[in-house]
């Protein structure tokens, strides 16, 4: 969607009263729209064209793009590099910052750098263990955790100081996010964990892949009762599965993703499993949308990014709304 005061690409919007960032994503959520975000696949290359091509798949379908930070502890182009390229073209970016690879000195420097480049949103993550990735011999840093990292960014923004207490002359104007996994044990702890993230500074929450609607409903009821939905926007994580076999593999090998048996049954019974995976994703968006307090969908279409247009259109996730897109 275009606002009346749209700046030239690469510059940010004016900060509205009550907002903490000059970004489009915060505006969409605060205006009460159902927001759509998607994860961009980071290239294994140093060619900016690879990034532009991948981002173009989302044009007109998403409100903000998450740039992952070597997810799964596999090396790819950095979140910072991708955000740098895409903010210059006007895209609303969500910089994912994991605690796996950088200590507090590097992280604070990156936060200022990102904000200076026009990044308006940061998602603070603990990060996957290095053992899960392609460099298992690397040193895991974990100087901070996701919650202390959120507190650190909020401190930089609101107190205008580094953790050391040294002053920051122009603070990073950011909209802060955290992740939640309602589907992993200890289940009773999960709402409290989300509460801690919000207390530390999270203003939006993106969840892990949701394939278990009943569990999601329970979780949302718990966080609603705790009054957390007045303090943060929850975007439910969804994504298409390529086949029943892929789903089995993810269930076994990707930490924290819970795929119920019925999902695998539905996929294996389909003639075109890939299409059924897309259909399932569309059904899930329609179902999470019905859950009170879900403010958007976060689509992680790993290696199926070209299907995002179909998913957003057919699920009618945006209603009549047309998100910002770069000028042709």
């Amino acid at each position: 969607m275009k606002f009346d005061d749209e700046p030239t690409p690469g510059e940010n919007l004016p900060i509205l009263p009550g907002h903490t960032s000059p970004g489009r994503f915060e505006r969409v959520l605060r205006a009460g729209h159902f927001a759509v975000t998607a994860e961009i696949a980071p290239p294994d290359s140093a060619d900016p064209a690879d990034v532009y091509e991948r981002a173009a798949l989302f044009d007109g379908y998403v409100d903000a793009i998450n740039a992952t930070d070597s997810s799964g502890a596999n090396c790819h182009m950095s979140s910072m590099g991708i955000c740098s390229l895409l903010t210059r073209r006007g895209y609303a970016m969500i910089l994912q910052q994991s605690c796996r690879d950088r200590n507090r000195i590097a992280m604070q420097g990156d936060i200022l750098g990102a904000a200076a480049m026009g990044v308006c949103n940061i998602l603070c993550l603990s990060g996957d263990g290095v053992q899960s990735g392609d460099h298992p011999e690397a040193k895991p840093v974990f100087d901070m955790d996701s919650i202390s990292a959120l507190g650190m960014v909020r401190h930089m923004r609101d107190e205008q100081r580094f953790l050391s207490g040294r002053a920051i002359s122009a603070p990073p104007r950011l909209f802060l996010g955290g992740a939640a996994n309602p589907f992993a044990p200890p289940l009773d702890f999960r709402p409290h964990r989300m509460a801690k993230k919000i207390a530390a500074g999270a203003q939006f929450i993106q969840t892990q892949y949701c394939f278990d609607i009943e569990r999601m409903k329970t979780f949302m009821a718990q966080v609603r009762d705790m009054g957390l939905l007045e303090k943060a926007y929850v975007l439910a994580g969804v994504g298409p599965l390529a086949s029943a076999k892929a789903a089995e593999w993810i269930r076994k090998n990707v930490a924290g993703v819970h795929i119920p048996d019925e999902v695998i049954k539905r996929l294996s019974g389909a003639e075109d499993q890939k299409q059924e995976g897309v259909n399932l994703c569309i059904d899930l968006i329609e179902q999470v949308r019905e859950i009170e307090g879900v403010s958007g969908a976060h689509i992680m279409a790993y290696r199926m990014e070209d299907r995002i247009g179909e998913i957003v259109t057919r699920s009618n996730a945006l209603g009549n709304r047309e998100p910002w897109r770069p000028a042709p």
Binding site: C99, R100, S126, G127, D128, G129, Q131, S132, P140, F142, D145, S146, I147, S148, A179, A180, N181, A184, P185, P186, F189, H192, R193, K196, Q208, A255, G256, H258
Partner: peptide
Amino acid sequence: PKTLRNGPCGGVRQNGGCEIKPEMTCVWV
């Protein structure tokens, strides 16, 4: 293994096992 001091990561297995050391129960469980 991630020395998290504020709660479990999102990688805890359905049986409560650690993402990184599956044979160990998650510290936060």
